[in-house]
């Protein structure tokens, strides 16, 4: 096997400038900075909030007292959303970070390791990629009822292999650069080389990968919550959507389902926008 050839069809372009690219850079920066600031404040203030209190107002339609209505044990949907949003976002980002870290480790091993290590890692990745990871996620989550930390680890462990080949291709590309070759000759260790020379140039691609991971993690977390497989003391969008399942033929499904679903969709769209034109990546795939 020739291991210096990047896998076809997996190489990604740096994020293309989408429609946002036509706006003045300053405005764009401001917009993003503001959004980011709001997100950070929301996140930090809200992680770990308990579920909202139960009450006698059961399945109330949205109104004055409860702007988004109440669920079937009288919990205010808006309060639930305020508690669930930071958790769900935090899980998605932490899981993406953990996934990326694992993928970088795997990528480094697959690019710079010995022949046997390289072959082993790549084969493992191939095998994991054809496994439906949702099966494993389901079985494990069913037994653990994961809370925030467990969930993050679980998501990372069932996701990391998707990114290894891309990371490896990027690293191989960098390895051929002269500055790196020189640094290597000077005799720096692998850790120093990776952190100072190897990873910084591929940061934009890694960022795009991480954002894609955020999307996947958010969707999977919501899915597990929807199946009731997340710690019930940890409010999430998925858990809120689960409330709607028993009320599909009554009007209540709308105020139980739509607030978390719309918030999740908006979050996913925002992430998609941050990572550039959605077709950028797939165009790259098609060109291969």
């Amino acid at each position: 096997m020739v291991c210096s050839v990047p896998a076809p069809g997996r190489q990604r372009n740096s994020p293309k400038r989408g429609p946002a690219g036509r706006r003045p850079a300053l405005r764009r920066l401001l917009g993003r900075g503001l959004g980011l600031a709001i997100a950070v404040v929301l996140l930090v203030s809200g992680i770990g909030l308990p579920p909202p209190a139960t009450g006698p107002d059961i399945l109330m339609a949205p109104g004055f007292a409860h702007p988004l209505g109440t669920n079937d044990i009288g919990q205010d949907v808006l309060a639930g959303l305020l508690a669930a949003t930071p958790n769900s976002i935090a899980i998605a980002f932490l899981a993406a970070a953990a996934t990326l870290a694992l993928a970088i480790l795997g990528g480094l091993a697959a690019a710079c390791g010995g022949r046997i290590v390289q072959a082993l890692v790549l084969r493992l990745v191939d095998i994991l990629q054809i496994l439906p990871s949702i099966l494993i996620l389901l079985v494990v989550a069913a037994s653990l009822e994961p809370g925030l930390v467990t969930l993050v680890l679980l998501l990372a462990l069932t996701n990391w292999h998707d990114d290894v080949r891309v990371v490896r291709a990027l690293i191989l590309r960098e390895l051929t650069r002269e500055s790196l070759q020189q640094a290597r000759l000077v005799g720096y260790g692998w850790f120093y080389l990776s952190v100072r020379h190897l990873l910084p140039p591929i940061a934009p691609e890694l960022r795009a990968l991480a954002l894609e991971s955020v999307r996947r993690a958010a969707l999977k977390t919501a899915g597990l919550g929807f199946l009731g497989l997340v710690d019930p003391q940890l409010p999430t969008w998925g858990g809120m959507m689960q409330d709607a399942l028993g009320h599909l033929t009554t009007p209540a499904w709308a105020w139980l389902m739509l607030p978390p679903a719309v918030t999740l969709a908006l979050f996913l769209l925002t992430i998609q926008r941050l990572s550039g034109d959605p077709s950028g990546r797939t165009a790259a795939e098609a060109e291969a």
Binding site: L219, A222, G223, F226, G238, M241, A244, L245, L248, W253, M257, A261, L264, A265, L266, L268, L269, Q272, P278
Partner: peptide, 18 residues
């Protein structure tokens, strides 16, 4: 379609069902 892709599958199912 970007918007549609951001709606989780059960939400799509429930919307269709409704």
């Amino acid at each position: 379609l970007s918007a549609l892709g951001s709606v989780p599958p059960y939400a799509v199912s429930i919307l269709l069902l409704w």
